[in-house]
Amino acid sequence: MEESIVTYNAFHHVAWGTTISVYFWLVGASAGSFVISSFGWVFGIKRYKPLTMTASVTAIIMLLLVPFLLTWDLGKPVRFIYLLIPGYWHSTGPMAWGTLLICLYPMSMMVYSYFVIKSNQTFAKVFGIVAIVLALSTHWYTGVVMELNPGRFLNHTALAPLLFLTGAFISGIGLMNVIVWIRNMLLPEEKRFDWTLVYEMAQFMMYGIVFDIFLLFLDFMQTIYGSQNEVIGHGVVLMQVFRFPYLWLEMVIGLFIPLIILVTPLKRTKAGAIVASLLVAVGVYGMRIWWVMGGQYLQSFY
Protein backbone atom coordinates (compact mmCIF):
# COMPACT_ATOMS: atom_id res chain seq x y z
CA MET A 1 0.00 0.00 0.00
CA GLU A 2 2.91 2.33 0.63
CA GLU A 3 3.81 2.36 -3.05
CA SER A 4 0.36 3.47 -4.06
CA ILE A 5 -1.32 6.75 -4.78
CA VAL A 6 -4.40 7.15 -2.67
CA THR A 7 -7.61 8.78 -3.79
CA TYR A 8 -10.49 9.09 -1.42
CA ASN A 9 -14.06 10.19 -0.96
CA ALA A 10 -14.02 11.12 2.71
CA PHE A 11 -12.29 13.75 4.80
CA HIS A 12 -11.83 14.06 8.53
CA HIS A 13 -11.82 17.03 10.79
CA VAL A 14 -8.84 17.42 13.10
CA ALA A 15 -10.33 15.98 16.29
CA TRP A 16 -8.25 18.07 18.68
CA GLY A 17 -7.54 21.62 17.59
CA THR A 18 -6.60 25.04 18.94
CA THR A 19 -8.38 24.61 22.29
CA ILE A 20 -6.26 21.60 23.18
CA SER A 21 -3.08 23.40 22.03
CA VAL A 22 -3.93 26.35 24.31
CA TYR A 23 -4.68 23.92 27.16
CA PHE A 24 -1.27 22.28 26.78
CA TRP A 25 0.40 25.70 26.77
CA LEU A 26 -1.49 26.83 29.88
CA VAL A 27 -0.67 23.67 31.85
CA GLY A 28 2.99 23.96 30.83
CA ALA A 29 3.29 27.62 31.72
CA SER A 30 1.53 26.92 35.02
CA ALA A 31 3.94 24.11 35.89
CA GLY A 32 6.95 26.26 34.93
CA SER A 33 5.70 29.20 36.99
CA PHE A 34 5.12 26.97 39.97
CA VAL A 35 8.67 25.67 39.84
CA ILE A 36 9.82 29.31 40.23
CA SER A 37 7.38 29.72 43.11
CA SER A 38 8.92 26.76 44.89
CA PHE A 39 12.53 27.99 44.66
CA GLY A 40 12.30 30.01 47.88
CA TRP A 41 10.20 27.78 50.15
CA VAL A 42 10.97 24.28 48.89
CA PHE A 43 14.54 24.52 47.62
CA GLY A 44 15.63 27.10 50.16
CA ILE A 45 16.93 29.70 47.68
CA LYS A 46 15.93 32.65 49.85
CA ARG A 47 16.41 35.42 47.29
CA TYR A 48 13.47 33.94 45.33
CA LYS A 49 11.05 34.20 48.25
CA PRO A 50 9.69 37.60 47.16
CA LEU A 51 8.64 36.00 43.86
CA THR A 52 6.77 33.13 45.51
CA MET A 53 3.23 34.49 45.62
CA THR A 54 3.39 36.19 42.22
CA ALA A 55 4.55 32.93 40.66
CA SER A 56 2.09 30.85 42.63
CA VAL A 57 -0.91 33.04 41.79
CA THR A 58 0.12 33.03 38.11
CA ALA A 59 0.34 29.23 38.16
CA ILE A 60 -3.05 28.89 39.87
CA ILE A 61 -4.81 31.31 37.50
CA MET A 62 -3.35 29.58 34.43
CA LEU A 63 -4.55 26.23 35.68
CA LEU A 64 -7.98 27.38 36.74
CA LEU A 65 -8.65 28.34 33.13
CA VAL A 66 -8.04 24.75 32.05
CA PRO A 67 -11.27 23.07 33.26
CA PHE A 68 -13.35 25.73 31.48
CA LEU A 69 -11.43 25.22 28.24
CA LEU A 70 -11.62 21.45 28.41
CA THR A 71 -15.29 21.37 29.34
CA TRP A 72 -16.11 23.78 26.53
CA ASP A 73 -14.22 21.56 24.09
CA LEU A 74 -16.20 18.43 24.98
CA GLY A 75 -18.88 17.27 22.58
CA LYS A 76 -21.15 16.93 25.62
CA PRO A 77 -19.93 19.65 28.02
CA VAL A 78 -22.41 18.84 30.79
CA ARG A 79 -21.08 15.28 30.92
CA PHE A 80 -17.70 16.50 32.23
CA ILE A 81 -19.11 15.37 35.57
CA TYR A 82 -18.79 11.73 34.40
CA LEU A 83 -15.03 12.12 34.71
CA LEU A 84 -15.47 12.61 38.43
CA ILE A 85 -17.95 9.79 39.13
CA PRO A 86 -16.35 6.50 40.22
CA GLY A 87 -18.77 4.37 38.18
CA TYR A 88 -17.59 6.00 34.96
CA TRP A 89 -13.89 6.23 35.77
CA HIS A 90 -11.79 4.04 33.47
CA SER A 91 -8.36 3.22 34.84
CA THR A 92 -6.73 2.45 31.46
CA GLY A 93 -7.76 5.82 30.05
CA PRO A 94 -4.95 8.39 30.50
CA MET A 95 -7.56 11.15 30.48
CA ALA A 96 -9.22 9.67 33.56
CA TRP A 97 -5.93 10.05 35.44
CA GLY A 98 -5.41 13.48 33.92
CA THR A 99 -8.71 14.62 35.38
CA LEU A 100 -7.50 13.65 38.84
CA LEU A 101 -4.26 15.55 38.31
CA ILE A 102 -6.04 18.66 37.02
CA CYS A 103 -8.23 18.60 40.15
CA LEU A 104 -5.46 17.91 42.66
CA TYR A 105 -2.73 20.19 41.27
CA PRO A 106 -4.47 23.57 41.79
CA MET A 107 -5.72 22.42 45.20
CA SER A 108 -2.20 21.57 46.32
CA MET A 109 -0.94 24.92 45.02
CA MET A 110 -3.62 26.71 47.00
CA VAL A 111 -2.73 24.84 50.19
CA TYR A 112 0.96 25.60 49.58
CA SER A 113 0.17 29.30 49.03
CA TYR A 114 -1.87 29.36 52.25
CA PHE A 115 1.09 28.11 54.29
CA VAL A 116 3.39 30.55 52.51
CA ILE A 117 1.06 33.40 53.53
CA LYS A 118 1.07 32.01 57.09
CA SER A 119 4.89 31.80 56.93
CA ASN A 120 4.75 28.14 57.99
CA GLN A 121 8.03 26.89 56.55
CA THR A 122 7.46 23.21 57.38
CA PHE A 123 4.02 22.84 55.82
CA ALA A 124 4.86 25.17 52.95
CA LYS A 125 7.77 22.86 52.10
CA VAL A 126 5.69 19.69 52.43
CA PHE A 127 2.82 20.95 50.29
CA GLY A 128 5.29 22.65 47.95
CA ILE A 129 6.89 19.27 47.24
CA VAL A 130 3.46 17.70 46.72
CA ALA A 131 2.50 20.53 44.37
CA ILE A 132 5.75 20.23 42.39
CA VAL A 133 5.19 16.50 41.90
CA LEU A 134 1.63 17.22 40.77
CA ALA A 135 2.75 20.10 38.54
CA LEU A 136 5.27 17.88 36.77
CA SER A 137 2.79 15.00 36.59
CA THR A 138 0.04 17.19 35.16
CA HIS A 139 2.25 18.37 32.37
CA TRP A 140 3.95 15.00 31.90
CA TYR A 141 0.45 13.62 31.41
CA THR A 142 -0.22 15.94 28.46
CA GLY A 143 2.83 14.48 26.73
CA VAL A 144 1.65 10.98 27.57
CA VAL A 145 -1.81 11.63 26.13
CA MET A 146 -0.21 12.45 22.79
CA GLU A 147 2.48 9.78 23.00
CA LEU A 148 0.17 6.79 23.53
CA ASN A 149 -1.09 6.76 19.95
CA PRO A 150 0.98 4.31 17.91
CA GLY A 151 -0.98 5.24 14.79
CA ARG A 152 0.13 8.88 15.01
CA PHE A 153 3.77 8.58 14.10
CA LEU A 154 4.69 12.22 14.83
CA ASN A 155 3.40 11.90 18.39
CA HIS A 156 4.40 8.34 19.17
CA THR A 157 7.76 8.91 20.83
CA ALA A 158 8.91 8.42 24.39
CA LEU A 159 10.53 11.86 24.13
CA ALA A 160 7.08 13.48 24.15
CA PRO A 161 6.68 13.95 27.92
CA LEU A 162 10.25 15.20 28.21
CA LEU A 163 9.73 17.68 25.37
CA PHE A 164 6.54 18.87 27.02
CA LEU A 165 8.21 19.27 30.41
CA THR A 166 11.18 21.15 28.98
CA GLY A 167 8.79 23.41 27.08
CA ALA A 168 6.89 23.95 30.34
CA PHE A 169 10.03 24.88 32.22
CA ILE A 170 11.21 27.48 29.70
CA SER A 171 7.78 28.92 28.91
CA GLY A 172 6.97 29.18 32.63
CA ILE A 173 10.19 31.09 33.29
CA GLY A 174 9.62 33.25 30.22
CA LEU A 175 6.12 34.08 31.37
CA MET A 176 7.31 34.88 34.91
CA ASN A 177 9.98 37.25 33.59
CA VAL A 178 7.39 39.08 31.51
CA ILE A 179 5.06 39.33 34.52
CA VAL A 180 7.91 40.64 36.69
CA TRP A 181 8.69 43.23 34.00
CA ILE A 182 5.05 44.38 33.81
CA ARG A 183 4.79 44.44 37.61
CA ASN A 184 7.99 46.46 37.95
CA MET A 185 6.67 48.96 35.43
CA LEU A 186 3.41 49.41 37.30
CA LEU A 187 4.64 49.50 40.92
CA PRO A 188 6.74 52.12 42.74
CA GLU A 189 10.48 51.59 43.13
CA GLU A 190 10.35 50.13 46.66
CA LYS A 191 7.89 47.38 45.68
CA ARG A 192 9.70 46.24 42.56
CA PHE A 193 11.46 42.88 42.27
CA ASP A 194 15.21 42.79 41.96
CA TRP A 195 16.20 42.68 38.27
CA THR A 196 19.06 40.30 39.01
CA LEU A 197 16.40 37.63 39.59
CA VAL A 198 15.19 38.15 36.03
CA TYR A 199 18.71 37.80 34.67
CA GLU A 200 19.22 34.68 36.73
CA MET A 201 15.96 33.14 35.57
CA ALA A 202 16.90 33.98 31.99
CA GLN A 203 20.09 32.00 32.59
CA PHE A 204 18.04 28.97 33.76
CA MET A 205 15.89 29.43 30.68
CA MET A 206 18.98 29.31 28.47
CA TYR A 207 19.94 25.89 29.87
CA GLY A 208 16.38 24.74 29.21
CA ILE A 209 16.54 26.05 25.62
CA VAL A 210 19.78 24.15 24.96
CA PHE A 211 18.21 20.95 26.34
CA ASP A 212 15.04 21.53 24.30
CA ILE A 213 17.08 21.95 21.10
CA PHE A 214 18.93 18.73 21.95
CA LEU A 215 15.63 16.86 22.41
CA LEU A 216 14.26 18.25 19.14
CA PHE A 217 17.45 17.14 17.42
CA LEU A 218 16.95 13.61 18.80
CA ASP A 219 13.37 13.64 17.56
CA PHE A 220 14.51 14.92 14.16
CA MET A 221 17.12 12.15 13.87
CA GLN A 222 14.56 9.48 14.70
CA THR A 223 12.15 10.92 12.18
CA ILE A 224 14.46 11.21 9.19
CA TYR A 225 15.94 7.74 9.76
CA GLY A 226 12.49 6.34 10.55
CA SER A 227 9.70 4.71 8.61
CA GLN A 228 8.34 6.16 5.40
CA ASN A 229 5.48 7.61 7.40
CA GLU A 230 7.88 9.40 9.71
CA VAL A 231 9.88 10.80 6.80
CA ILE A 232 6.68 12.07 5.18
CA GLY A 233 5.56 13.34 8.56
CA HIS A 234 8.64 15.47 8.84
CA GLY A 235 9.05 16.50 5.21
CA VAL A 236 5.43 17.26 4.41
CA VAL A 237 3.65 17.90 7.69
CA LEU A 238 6.30 19.80 9.60
CA MET A 239 8.33 21.43 6.84
CA GLN A 240 5.38 22.39 4.65
CA VAL A 241 1.93 22.43 6.23
CA PHE A 242 3.05 23.27 9.77
CA ARG A 243 6.16 25.15 8.72
CA PHE A 244 5.14 28.34 10.57
CA PRO A 245 4.46 26.86 14.04
CA TYR A 246 7.30 24.31 13.77
CA LEU A 247 10.13 26.05 11.97
CA TRP A 248 9.44 29.73 12.56
CA LEU A 249 7.45 29.98 15.77
CA GLU A 250 9.08 27.21 17.80
CA MET A 251 12.57 26.90 16.33
CA VAL A 252 13.50 30.38 15.15
CA ILE A 253 11.38 32.69 17.30
CA GLY A 254 11.08 30.50 20.37
CA LEU A 255 14.50 28.87 20.61
CA PHE A 256 17.29 30.18 18.37
CA ILE A 257 16.73 33.96 18.63
CA PRO A 258 16.37 33.77 22.46
CA LEU A 259 19.46 31.55 22.60
CA ILE A 260 21.47 34.07 20.59
CA ILE A 261 20.31 36.82 22.94
CA LEU A 262 21.12 34.77 26.02
CA VAL A 263 24.65 33.79 25.01
CA THR A 264 25.63 37.37 24.24
CA PRO A 265 26.05 40.36 26.62
CA LEU A 266 22.46 41.27 25.73
CA LYS A 267 21.35 38.85 28.44
CA ARG A 268 22.48 41.38 31.05
CA THR A 269 20.18 44.03 29.69
CA LYS A 270 16.54 44.37 30.70
CA ALA A 271 15.45 44.52 27.08
CA GLY A 272 17.49 41.45 26.15
CA ALA A 273 16.22 39.32 29.03
CA ILE A 274 12.59 40.37 28.54
CA VAL A 275 12.56 40.00 24.75
CA ALA A 276 14.14 36.54 25.05
CA SER A 277 11.59 35.56 27.71
CA LEU A 278 8.65 36.80 25.67
CA LEU A 279 9.86 35.00 22.55
CA VAL A 280 10.30 31.73 24.44
CA ALA A 281 6.83 31.94 26.03
CA VAL A 282 5.27 32.57 22.61
CA GLY A 283 7.49 30.08 20.77
CA VAL A 284 6.51 27.17 22.99
CA TYR A 285 2.93 27.67 21.80
CA GLY A 286 4.20 26.84 18.30
CA MET A 287 5.34 23.46 19.63
CA ARG A 288 1.92 22.84 21.17
CA ILE A 289 0.24 23.61 17.82
CA TRP A 290 2.26 21.29 15.62
CA TRP A 291 2.42 18.61 18.25
CA VAL A 292 -1.37 18.45 18.66
CA MET A 293 -2.53 19.08 15.11
CA GLY A 294 0.47 17.92 13.07
CA GLY A 295 0.12 14.37 14.35
CA GLN A 296 -3.45 14.26 13.13
CA TYR A 297 -2.87 16.07 9.86
CA LEU A 298 -2.00 13.20 7.52
CA GLN A 299 -4.86 11.23 8.95
CA SER A 300 -7.35 13.96 8.08
CA PHE A 301 -7.40 12.57 4.53
CA TYR A 302 -8.97 9.36 3.18
Binding site: L74, R79, F80, L83
Partner: peptide
Protein backbone atom coordinates in the same frame (compact mmCIF):
# COMPACT_ATOMS: atom_id res chain seq x y z
CA UNK B 1 -21.59 7.43 28.58
CA UNK B 2 -19.74 9.22 25.77
CA UNK B 3 -18.65 12.73 26.76
CA UNK B 4 -17.33 13.64 23.29
CA UNK B 5 -13.68 14.05 24.34
CA UNK B 6 -12.61 12.50 21.00
CA UNK B 7 -9.59 10.70 22.43
CA UNK B 8 -10.86 7.53 20.73
CA UNK B 9 -10.75 9.34 17.37
CA UNK B 10 -7.13 10.28 18.05
CA UNK B 11 -6.27 6.72 19.10
Amino acid sequence: RCIGCRYCIIA
